[in-house]
Amino acid sequence: MGWPDGYGRRVLAEVDSTNAEAARLAPGLAGPEWILALRQSAARGRRGRAWVNPEGNFAATLVMPAREAPDRLALRSFVAAVSLHDALARVIGSDAGLALKWPNDVLLHGGKLAGILLESLGGPGGHLAIGIGVNLVAAPDRGQVEPGAVAPVALWPETGVRVTPEALLMALAGGYAGFEAQFTTYGFDPIRTAWLARAARLGEVVTARTAREEITGTFETVDAGGNLVLKTPQARHAIAAADVFF
């Protein structure tokens, strides 16, 4: 799979974070562009959490014009997740052990292999940054993640497969372009179907921890708005934002 038409590519030896670089570059970009950093000095995850990113791991951001409503832009996290799952399966040579954890993680053998972070840049009419981090060679120590969270894993120790960041970017960019075209043409439904087919713990009991409450119920589906739907004995809950614990 070659590099997709219409997408720029920028490979940096080092940067503070690829999402920060995307914010700096966005005003001068005419179209979507991938930014890959071979080393990050100040990587970030969700809610401002530090993201441990040693050299050899994958750190990239896709920055693209944001010409849609915020709720539709947010669905790009599912486009990115399905694309990343399939790119990893391609470079590994198998999708065995890979699964997607709502809202934005890729799991390998039950451990967290990758995370996705969406950020809005410049307000309405600005840009969207889709940041992606993958533990290709090393994972954070278990003690560096919050209690109860999925333990981090890395690709090489888990599978014996060595993949360079550049090789993963090539697989990911081509796959993302295909799913993005599907999303813009047919809407969220085919992406939602593809995501659910790769989902971890679908039909099982999970716990969603929001800023206000904790809900434990059966993971029933993801709805048309991208919300996690949990069924409890009392009700069905559509959850827009939460950390999910198994």
Rank of each mutant, 00 (worst) to 15 (best):
A211F: 02
P70K: 01
I116H: 10
A194Q: 10
G125E: 05
V206L: 08
G133T: 02
A181P: 00
A50C: 09
A66E: 09
A20P: 10
L75E: 09
R192G: 05
A59Y: 03
N57L: 12
N104I: 14
G110Q: 09
V82Q: 03
T218F: 06
G97N: 05
F246N: 12
G8Q: 09
I191V: 12
R212P: 01
L12C: 04
N57R: 07
L73F: 02
A238R: 12
I116Q: 12
G123V: 14
V229G: 00
T216P: 04
A129S: 15
A69F: 10
V106Y: 02
E146S: 15
P4F: 00
F245Q: 11
A154Y: 00
I130W: 03
L172P: 05
P54T: 05
L73P: 02
T221A: 11
S77D: 06
R44P: 01
P165G: 04
G110A: 11
I239F: 05
T232G: 01
F78A: 02
I215A: 08
L172D: 06
W51D: 15
A23R: 09
T61N: 10
P124K: 06
N135C: 02
I215R: 07
V163L: 12
E21R: 15
Y176D: 13
E14K: 10
P140C: 00
D105E: 06
L202A: 13
L172H: 13
R72Q: 09
F183I: 08
E204H: 11
A87L: 13
P27H: 04
L84P: 12
L100Y: 03
K101I: 10
Q40T: 13
G226Y: 11
G143P: 08
L155P: 06
L118Q: 09
S17I: 01
R192N: 08
E55V: 15
G175I: 06
A96G: 06
R209A: 11
D189Y: 03
D243S: 11
E21S: 14
G178E: 15
A171T: 09
P32E: 04
A20C: 08
E166N: 01
E213Y: 00
G48F: 01
F78P: 00
G122H: 02
V205T: 15
A66K: 07
V153P: 07
E204P: 02
I132L: 15
V134D: 03
G31T: 08
R192E: 05
V222A: 04
L108Q: 04
A129V: 13
G28K: 13
